[in-house]
């Protein structure tokens, strides 16, 4: 089987998965989650008005028709309007994407680079005190709740020491930068632990391979071996790991965006959750699911391309 038909088959597989995602969303939010009209109409709702609204929202239509709506929205991206804000959901997502990206992209990029550098560094001193200390610090960092980091970071670094903006956001480069600095740092602290641990294993895996021994016997310095040979080979698992994390950036960082008032997709999602705004929840779920599936296809295909050892099944 060649790479094209492999790619094609993997892409074809996206369809049943999207159908499945739509089904789960439909079951959760249309069938069992209950009637939202009371929420939407507020404290002065009357029974007849609720019935009218149910009709208006299409909640009195047959289930099959409602399911098809979910499926259709997954392919057309036409998610309708938010129940609570009455805004076009697609427009909301477009508007929220940029603030989210200005936070998540640099944070993701910087934390990945930092983690790779640290992991190479500790591999250089593998088994020694530095290595063990770094691994311990990583594990320790992972053992604290993300909420605690955010609360403390905002209070101590932004307010008490006055190093950063407390919260807020300005659109446009470079005005947003002061506002995303602290969230980026907290993001890095949150992700550096697991990342370093993973990359370190990958690098160590390579270091014990035969070709490294050969290189060493040829008298190459440890530094050259690490950066030229080991890193090159470790790139495959590293890239896989990085790629598969990208779709999760779509929802942004829910807590970070909320605490730092960044008007991104994360805060849109959190707001929708708090307000039982089902169309928005559904749209965000569908979008991130599709991104996840497409990226896993992409990762698999890339994997085949760069690593001939992987057999096409």
């Amino acid at each position: 089987m060649n790479i094209y038909s492999y790619t094609f088959r993997r892409l074809l597989y996206v369809i049943p998965v999207v159908l499945g995602v739509s089904l789960i969303i439909f079951v959760l939010f249309n069938l069992v989650a209950g009637d939202p009209t009371a929420i939407l109409l507020g404290k002065h709702a009357s029974a007849s008005q609720m019935a009218e609204l149910r009709h208006e929202l299409g909640l009195d239509r047959p289930w099959l028709a409602q399911y098809f709506d979910v499926v259709r929205s997954a392919f057309t991206f036409d998610f309708g309007r938010s129940w609570s804000t009455k805004q076009e959901i697609f427009e909301m997502i477009k508007a929220g994407a940029i603030p989210s990206l200005t936070l998540s992209f640099p944070a993701f990029f910087l934390s990945t680079v930092l983690a790779i550098i640290v992991s190479l560094f500790v591999s250089f001193y593998r088994g020694g005190v530095v290595d063990r200390l770094v691994v311990f610090v990583c594990v320790a960092l992972m053992s604290i709740s993300s909420l605690a980091y955010i609360l403390f970071g905002q209070w101590f670094l932004a307010y008490y020491l006055g190093l950063f903006e407390i919260s807020g956001y300005e659109s446009g480069f470079p005005y947003f930068i002061p506002y995303v600095l602290l969230p980026i740092i907290i993001w890095m602290v949150l992700s550096v632990g697991p990342d370093v641990r993973f990359y370190r294993t990958v690098v160590l895996d390579e270091i014990y391979q035969d070709y490294v021994r050969t290189a060493r016997s040829k008298g190459l310095s440890e530094r050259v071996i690490l950066f030229k040979h080991v890193l090159k080979n470790a790139m495959i698992p590293i890239i896989t790991y990085v790629l598969i994390k990208i779709p999760f950036l779509i929802l942004g960082a829910l807590l970070l965006e909320s605490f730092f008032s960044i008007p991104g997709l994360g805060s849109i999602t959190l707001n929708a959750i708090n307000g039982s705004d089902f169309p928005v929840i559904k749209a965000m779920t569908i979008l991130s699911s599709i991104a996840y599936i497409l990226f896993s296809v992409f990762t698999d295909v890339m994997y085949c391309l760069v690593d001939p050892r992987v057999r096409l099944k």
Binding site: Q154, W155, Y159, G162, I166, S167, G168, S258, F259, S261
Partner: peptide, 18 residues
């Protein structure tokens, strides 16, 4: 009109005079 949903940043911003 700033929209700050979480109470901690809201309060801290006030104390800073923002």
């Amino acid at each position: 009109v700033n929209i700050i949903i979480e109470s901690q940043p809201r309060w801290l911003n006030f104390q800073k005079g923002k």
